[in-house]
Design a protein around this nucleic acid. Structure first.
Lengths: 159, 159
DNA sequence: GTTGACGTTGACGTTCGCGTAAAGATCGGG
DNA sequence: CCCGATCTTTACGCGAACGTCAACGTCAAC
């Protein structure tokens, strides 16, 4: 089964046009140019046109993985920079590891924020539900506004 | 204990200057003006100066609560608009309830995204750690780059 | 009188990650 | 020879939620 899969597997030394690579990863050519502008990719050139080799393809993969993980492009760039330093890749990896761990922390933080928000939301929801449960007693009286003021105050003062 | 607490409790009919109210809620005056510009607050005027009464204070409280919950200002504005309609507050509350439930869904979605990101991060971290565990065999050989390429490929192809 | 704290209204700047023209080069096909 | 597809660069737009001037008025205090 070598021939049929040739185009897909065989981690090869192909070259890619910008839109080829873009399609493969489900991004737009604009994104690739943008990453290049941010010094995250450095494709070769054939005349004017960008020529992506598998080095660039690998870097793009890293970029997109890091993006999925929520890292800002600036941080991703630093990580990629470290990978280019060739010599002391241990320091590089330690740096990347550091950033990853930081990102774990911030993600945990964000998750806690979301959980807190969800709690507040559930409070608000059950309050609204209780309000709606009171089928509508003296709702046509103009004092309903003042009533809201009162209830809202009681509700919010402990929040 | 009525006198001492007079300034704090006694849900009163005070008036607030913009910076008073801002300080009380830990936001900047600019934010309050911004909310007003977005028709979320409608303070009275004494000449040029904004005069906030407890109605506005309550609305601000709602705004900040909704913000904490992650609602965009546009949605918060709609919720506040509904509260102003006086008559049919049941429809209003149902609308708010709807938005709250929607927000619950999006927050759950975001949490799942974060969890997925955390998983990927943990994978990346343990990969980096394993790389660092190999105390550093032929790291001075120039082939370390190619080695990275290979390992990275193996790592990323299943991701 | 003048200083300083507070208020006002514009209006442009910021951050992020691209999208979206605009205007042109280059290439193969019909 | 022109068409359409694909590539290039430059550059402005966007959306969210304000920040940060600028330039000015107003007030009590010293």
């Amino acid at each position: 089964m070598p021939d049929t899969a040739t185009t897909v597997s065989a981690a090869d030394s192909r070259t890619y046009s910008i839109s080829e690579l873009a399609r493969e990863f489900g991004v737009t050519p604009r994104a690739l140019r943008f990453y290049e502008d941010k010094d995250m990719l450095h494709p070769a050139r054939d005349g004017m046109m960008r020529v992506y080799r598998n080095r660039d393809r690998a870097r793009l993969k890293v970029i997109l993985q890091c993006k999925r993980v929520g890292l800002p492009l600036a941080d991703i760039r630093e990580i990629l920079d470290l990978y280019g330093m060739d010599r002391n890749e241990r320091a590089q990896k330690r740096e990347a590891l550091k950033k990853f761990r930081q990102q774990v922390d911030t993600l945990h933080q964000q998750r806690d924020d979301i959980d807190a928000a969800l709690e507040e939301l559930h409070n608000g929801i059950s309050w609204l539900e209780s309000q709606l449960a009171i089928i509508g007693p003296a709702s046509d009286e103009a004092e309903s506004v003042a009533a809201y003021e009162q209830v809202a105050k009681a509700h919010m003062d402990d929040a």
